[in-house]
Write a protein that binds this DNA or RNA. Structure first.
Length: 467
RNA sequence: GGAGAGAUGGCAGAGUGGUCGAAUGCGCCCGCUUGCUAAGCGGGUGGGGGAUCACAAGUCCCCCCCCGGGUUCGAAUCCCGGUCUCUCCGCCA
């Protein structure tokens, strides 16, 4: 699934979010308050890089259609460094002279104390000045988008994404095809009406084969990834602000996430959040890399701003289950690109096992999130929508998330670097049940179960509609 | 939910206002010694930022003893707030 589009929404920021943000050290305050071994500033991008290549940043922001005031950042940076140099010189003097105090006494000592007091006050004034400027700088830095890869197509929204390849052919039904809702009724797979009564819009019950199919495809996907050497992980579904901010959903995506107000925890919209955050603040040994993880979690999305869109059926709902693959690798462009290709193919293999037609699109600049360097979406053919619709989203972040998470590694020479991160959907259900049911339906309303899925369905080959 | 204890370098563990970025031990790295190994001996061993500067090396400086703030000429040490961990009691899938 695509990352929460909230990064581009200008939603009202709830008090609770800013409270948590402040405590976490993101957003309005320059430094983290909660426990955080990384202690320090964590700009989205390396400030040195911005300093040296302002034009790259500017052009990247343009391509992503995200506003970004690079000049203001550079100015703040210049001023802060100037004051800092001066403040540090004072601090050094103060420190040095402090050490002489125990050796002094009488009037000499009194005079020295007075001098030092004055020095200290001057320092504090400068620190305060720095703090104000730095607060503004940090806020701006969090909004700097990661420049997209040069190959990323220009474009302002998903209409301008570029198709890369197709696999399989959309089925031509020699009979009148039913949509998944109709099939669901025939097989008693879902209940939307009662769900709405209990839980509101965009909710559902899965019943009978509907429930089993969901667990089946999830397990198939998980097993496939485990066979590829990924570590299976069951993850926390409630996370702190830092995890949301570290993976770049916050700030910006607050409106898309459910928040538990009393505890200031957020329901994850994807296992990417806890998985990518898993080793945050650590310096990994290069020998451990790449970390290849596959997580199974429920995903919760408010779908704010989507009112009226895709209201029917299983397409856009508030809660679903997803198997997600995450890779943490070395800070190496070529490796990162290579893994991006791998995680894309992993997911394609799952769709092939499910015998579903799909295509891969290269997501254009304007449809990329703030942190993504490049993204490929997989769209699976959905007969009822008469279109390829998004079921997977494979993103490459460079060091964007890792920098925020302070996720680093030590190379063979003992040097410390920030990791690269990537992730992709392996399967998300029940959305994938739409193409699964619709593509494999037969004239009599029965549904053929693809071979690879049968072991997960008690060996059954076909689902027969209820009498 | 109630009561208490604690958080120091990769690990263990000292340190209650100055000479502590931090003893000591273990681990790790480099030398020496040694048929090999072990032992022994000597040295080294965290992260971040800034100045100079070529985004190099080197040199200098600042910050970090869970996180943030405060007191003080000076804080790992004192004060306030937060987070986490552990123990006991209660509750509970």
């Amino acid at each position: 699934m695509r990352p929460l589009p909230g990064a581009r929404l200008l939603g009202t920021i709830h008090t609770i979010h800013s409270r948590a943000a402040r405590r976490a050290g993101f957003g309005t305050l320059p430094r983290p308050r909660r426990q955080d071994h990384s202690a320090g500033k964590k700009p989205m991008l390396d400030l040195k890089f911005i300093r040296q290549h302002p034009d790259v940043i500017k052009d990247g922001a343009r391509k992503k259609h995200i506003p970004c005031d690079v000049d203001r950042i550079l100015e703040l940076d210049r001023r802060i460094r100037a004051i800092k140099t001066e403040a540090e010189a004072k601090k050094a003097e103060q420190k040095r002279r402090s050490k002489e105090i125990p050796g002094l006494d009488g009037e000499e000592k009194a005079r020295a104390l007075q001098d030092l007091k004055r020095l200290g006050d001057e320092q504090k004034a400068m620190d305060a000045e720095i703090r104000v400027l730095d607060e503004e700088l940090q806020k701006l830095l969090f909004e700097v988008p990661n420049p997209p890869a040069p190959e990323v197509p220009e474009g302002k929204d998903d209409a301008e994404n570029v198709e890369l390849r197709r696999h399989g052919e959309p089925v031509q039904f020699p009979f009148e095809a039913k949509d998944h809702l109709e099939l669901g009724r025939m097989h008693d797979l879902f209940d939307f009406e009662r769900a709405a009564r209990i839980a509101g819009s965009r909710t559902y019950f899965l019943k009978n084969a509907g429930a089993l199919l969901e667990l089946g495809v999830l397990r198939l996907a998980l097993d496939h990834m485990v066979s590829k050497g990924f570590t299976p992980m069951l993850v926390p579904h409630l996370v702190r602000y830092e995890a949301m901010a570290g993976t770049a959903y916050f700030p910006g995506g607050e409106e898309q996430a459910y928040c538990t107000e009393k505890d200031e925890l957020y329901l994850i919209g994807t296992a990417e959040v806890p998985l990518t955050s898993y080793r945050r603040g650590e310096i990994l040994d290069a020998a451990e890399l790449p970390l290849r993880m596959v997580g199974w979690s429920n995903c919760y999305r408010r779908e704010a701003g989507a009112a009226g869109r895709d209201t029917r059926g299983l397409y856009r709902i508030h809660q679903f289950q997803k198997i997600e693959q995450v890779i943490v690798c070395e800070n190496d462009e070529a490796k990162s690109v290579e893994f991006h290709d791998q995680i894309l193919r992993n997911s394609e293999e799952v769709l092939q096992m499910l015998e579903l037609p799909y295509r891969v699109v290269d997501v254009c600049g304007g449809d990329l999130g703030r942190g993504q360097i490049r993204k490929f979406d997989i769209e699976t053919w959905m007969p009822s929508r008469n279109s390829y619709s998004e079921t997977h989203s494979a993103s490459r972040f460079h060091d964007f998330q890792a920098r925020r998470l302070n996720l680093r590694y030590r190379d063979a020479d003992g040097k410390v670097h920030i990791c690269h991160t990537l992730n992709n959907t392996v399967i998300a259900s029940p959305r994938v049940l739409i193409p699964l049911l619709e593509n494999h339906q037969q004239a009599d309303g029965s549904i053929r179960i693809p071979k690879a899925l049968r072991p997960y369905m008690g060996g059954k080959e076909v689902l027969e509609p209820r009498a």
